[in-house]
Amino acid sequence: MTPSISVVIPVFRSRTLLPHLYDRLASVLDGTNAGWELILVDDASNDGTFEAMLALHEKDHRVRVVRFARNMGQHHATLHGIKRSKGDYVLTLDDDLQNPPEEIPAFLAKVDEGYDLVIGKITGDKAHSLSRNIASRTVQFLVGKILGKPKSLSLSSYRCMSRRAAEAMGSYSGAHVYMPALMLGSVPADRICNIPVAHHPRLEGHSQYTPRKLLKLFSYLLVNHSSIPLRFMTIWGTLISVASLGYAGFVLVDVLANGSAVTGWPTLVILISFMSGTILMSMGILGEYIGRLISENARSGQSPVFEEYP
């Protein structure tokens, strides 16, 4: 029987948390009186997490398990689970129980109102360190500026989507997955909404998002989903080229008016300034072309059509 609800959870080094997570999820999902499946995607853990996942599968075959051969990151694991899902409702949440499973019925009810993507808006500060909270706010700001996220919309990893939203996101075939870009590029803004959710402290351990991983996510956002660095270099190259040519003109006027104490120095300065400006200008033009290639590649990896009534 095809399940009505699919729950997708990327898992990384959560061996001891998985039994608690399953118990709470099963209790909530059984209470919906609908068929369900739990898709656990192991992001190449090395602490016995996959064995714990297999034990849950043996206990309950509604638990489906996937194992990555190498660490790909939370966003890759989430998208992989979405592609494997079969339910009319597809939920994603973290494996650390900071997202309370007991709030799942509220997500389902909001999708039933006609929304295709419902995102949990965390009330108050997240139960993370100060540096992690600052990084999260920075990401929210950049996503708004780069991807056009509405100011009123908050992002989190606790989400519920309709079947067609899941299929639209699952059509993405690019190598660099960044879920906010995928969501905002797949679902019309008027079909996305927030609901308030709590954010509990971790039962044990600490966040696996190291500064290195956060920087990697920043790079996905800035490099793979925007041309801001290239546009910056274009502007910088233009300014430097204009300044170089201006300086060359100043040296030329000064030499004509006052002469030069060092033979050949004005010529050398003018040539270096001219060539430097030309090179930087050319790099800026190349940057514009590369930016357009990035944009075209992003569009080709995903269909822009969300719904159609022929």
Rank of each mutant, 00 (worst) to 15 (best):
K216Y: 14
E307C: 07
D112M: 07
S131T: 10
S157K: 12
L25Q: 03
L230M: 13
V139R: 12
L142H: 02
I240Y: 06
I228R: 15
I122M: 10
V28L: 00
F12S: 03
L153Q: 10
E296G: 14
V305Q: 12
S207M: 10
L203T: 06
I294N: 10
G249I: 04
V197K: 05
I272V: 09
H200A: 10
M1K: 02
N258E: 06
E307S: 13
A127Q: 15
V11Y: 06
L203N: 13
K121T: 07
L222T: 13
D112P: 01
E102P: 00
K149F: 11
K121H: 13
K126W: 15
L217W: 05
I279P: 08
L280W: 10
G246K: 01
M72A: 14
I294G: 01
A166H: 02
V197Y: 11
G185T: 08
I285C: 02
S45P: 00
I270H: 03
I82P: 03
L268Y: 11
A55W: 02
L230H: 05
V305F: 11
I272Q: 03
Y172L: 03
F274L: 15
I104M: 07
I290P: 01
G120V: 11
I270S: 11
I279M: 15
H199F: 15
L256T: 02
V197M: 07
R299K: 14
A127G: 07
V223S: 10
D47F: 13
M161P: 08
G48D: 07
V143W: 00
S162L: 04
N133I: 15
E204R: 06
A181H: 08
G287E: 04
T238K: 08
L97H: 04
L221V: 11
R84L: 12
H80L: 08
H57S: 03
A34I: 00
A109T: 03
G35Q: 05
T32S: 11
G73K: 09
E308P: 00
H206E: 13
L256I: 01
P229Y: 12
P10E: 05
P150G: 15
T32E: 05
R84T: 00
I228Q: 15
I134S: 07
Y220F: 14
R15A: 15
L153D: 05
A109N: 01
K83E: 13
Q74R: 11
R299S: 15
H206Q: 12
K121M: 09
M169K: 08
Y178R: 05
K145E: 14
A257H: 04
L40K: 03
N133L: 15
V139N: 02
S226C: 13
L40M: 10
R62H: 01
V90F: 14
P101H: 06
